[in-house]
Structures are given as C-alpha cells and as structure tokens.
Simulated scan of single mutants.
Amino acid sequence: MIRTVLGDIAPDELGVTDSHDHLFFASVKLAGQELDDAAAAGAELRAFAAAGGQALAQWTPMGLGRRAEELPALSRATGVHIIAATGLHQAGHYPPERLAVLLDGLAERFIAELGEGLRLDEQPDGAPLPARAGLIKVAGDFHQMDRHASAVFEAAAAAHHATGATIAVHLEGGTHPLGALTTLHDRLGVPSGSVILGHLNRFPDPGPHREAAEAGAFLGFDGPSRANHATDWRLFDLLGALVEAGHAEQVLLGGDTTSAAARAASGGGPGIPFLLTDIRARALRDFGPETADAVFRRNPARAFDTDWRL
C-alpha cells in the first residue's frame, strides 16, 4: 500500500505523480522565500490536477514548516493524493536549538510519524495528527556524508526496518549518489528498491546514474525548479541515456518547488503544473507513451509502495 495523508491506498490508485515537490517549506537558508501560503499551495495543486496530476510527494521533513495540519484538507479539496514525509534535512537548515530537540530519539520520531501520525513542527513532542507520513527524507552533504548525515541515515534505516518505508535522499548538488546508496544498502541493510536518490540532474554525470539504476535504486530528477536551473538543459540527455540503457523503469520526475518565487500561482514560476504541461509533454514526444507512463505513473506506484509493518 501507499500511505497518503488521507490513508493507505493501493498502488494502482496513485495515478500521475509528481514524485518530489514541496507545498510548504521554510528554511533559515531561504529566509523570505518561505512556502507558507495555504491558498497558494491549493492553487498550485488545482492547476496540477487540471493538467492531469493525481498525486504529489511532499519531501519536506520535520521542522521545516511542512504544515502537516493543512495537508489533508488540501488533498480533499483538490482530489490530489499527497504523500507526506518524516525525516530530517541537513543541519544547516535548522536553528541549533530546534535541531537539538529533533535529534533526540530520532529513529523513534521517524517511526512514530510513519505509524501513529505526523507532529506539528512547532510541537514535535505533541499529540499525533490523523495524517501519517509515507516516506522518510534524509540528506547527504556535498560529495560526502558528514557526521550529521551519518546519524540521520542510521535513524532512517532503523525506521525503514521497523516500518518498511521508502527512504528519499537529498543529494547535495546531485553528488555522492553511490556513496549514499552504499551507506543505506551495504552498511545499513536497506534494499536498494526502497531508496530514491534525488537531485541527480544537478550533477549530470550519467555513469553513476546508470550504476545506481543497475543496483535497483530509484533515480529522482527534480527539475525544472529554480534551484536546478543550471543543469535543466541536460535533463533530457540524462533521461535519454537511461532509457536507451534500459533503465526507464527506475526513473522518477518531480518539480522540487522550494521557494515562493518558484510558484506559478503567486511567484515567477514555473511552479508545480509545469512538470506536466511541459516536461511530461516532451517526455511523450521524445520517448513515447509507454516510457512516459512508466516515469509518471508506474514507477512512483512502485517506489512509494510499502508492505507496511505499522
């Protein structure tokens, strides 16, 4: 089953999916560009639905303004399935005092949010909300795993073994995908098929992409966001290489909207709908309907499908 904020659904109910995006996000690294407007989030989701979108995975983890209390109502109002995240980002995204609270009993926090319900970011030790997380978000550092990342990966692996949940990895600048996969799979025993490696388009080296696909991981390409614009022009070269090598079944695509300026509804765009109006349209032209259906429908249904233990 796939765990959404409105409950568990069968994989074939998920539909056309934005596999990595943000309806709400607030970081000290993006002061003044917070995604904190519920009306704007609703407008983005409605436009996404109008373009054929049926599901969205919000990768915003604990403590970064994910507005868990808003997600069920947004899902009901727009008809879009929402998969919410537990997890923890890089240390630099948090004020030190907040990070210290979140790191205390980290694996247990992840497990509780996957099995019992999300907590309010302002009250991480409060009562659970009705909505539960459906994935675990973690983050590496640039070309390496720092001490903070290592601790978070260990907690995420423990939560995976307790629940079965998929682990989604922010790769800083798209770097170190094989190192992150080795840590999770070889050292911590997480199956490669339960790992999504994100931001691969930010470091457009097809060799590691192919190796990660051969190992069975899911490959996340999260353009066209403003954070990724420097390598957006390489996106279809990278996708084409994977398709040609027979790895289309491992590819996921998302918009990764991380700032108010990137919204179509209230900023300068391109926003969440662009993933379908432009990127999916080109995937259909370049690769055909079978591959496009794999990337936007079949692969997300497999990537987020979990034999839930809680």
Rank of each mutant, 00 (worst) to 15 (best):
R3A: 07
T4D: 06
L6K: 04
G7N: 08
G7K: 06
D8Q: 13
L14W: 05
V16T: 15
S19Y: 05
D21Q: 06
L23Y: 01
F25L: 12
V28N: 10
V28I: 15
K29E: 12
L30E: 12
L35I: 09
A39H: 14
E44W: 04
A47N: 03
Q54R: 14
A55C: 08
L56K: 00
R66G: 08
R67S: 15
A68F: 04
E70S: 14
L71H: 10
P72A: 02
P72I: 07
S75A: 15
S75V: 02
R76E: 13
A77I: 00
I82F: 07
I83R: 00
I83E: 07
A84R: 02
A85F: 09
G87P: 01
L88W: 03
L88S: 10
H89M: 11
G92H: 07
H93G: 03
P96S: 12
R109S: 14
F110P: 02
F110Q: 08
G115C: 14
G117M: 02
G117L: 05
L118E: 12
P124H: 10
P124L: 10
G126K: 12
A131C: 11
A133Y: 00
G134R: 01
L135V: 13
K137H: 06
K137V: 01
V138C: 12
V138L: 04
F142Q: 14
D146V: 05
R147G: 08
R147W: 10
H148Y: 13
A151T: 12
V152N: 05
A158C: 09
G164K: 06
A168G: 12
T175N: 09
H176Q: 11
P177D: 13
L178D: 10
A180G: 07
L181T: 00
T182D: 14
D186A: 15
R187Y: 12
V190I: 03
V195A: 03
I196R: 03
H199C: 04
L200W: 00
N201Y: 05
N201R: 02
R202W: 13
R202S: 09
G207R: 15
G207F: 11
H209W: 15
R210C: 07
E214C: 08
F221P: 01
P224N: 10
S225W: 01
A227Y: 12
T231G: 01
W233A: 15
R234D: 11
R234V: 05
F236H: 15
L239W: 05
E244I: 02
Q250G: 04
V251R: 02
G255S: 15
T257N: 11
T258N: 04
A260H: 09
A260D: 06
R263I: 03
A265L: 06
S266E: 09
S266T: 14
P270M: 02
P270Q: 02
I272F: 05
I272L: 15
I272M: 13
D278I: 04
D278W: 13
A281L: 03
R282D: 12
A283G: 07
F287G: 03
G288H: 06
T291V: 15
V295G: 00
F296G: 00
F296P: 02
P300L: 00
A301F: 05
R302W: 04
F304V: 04
L310E: 09
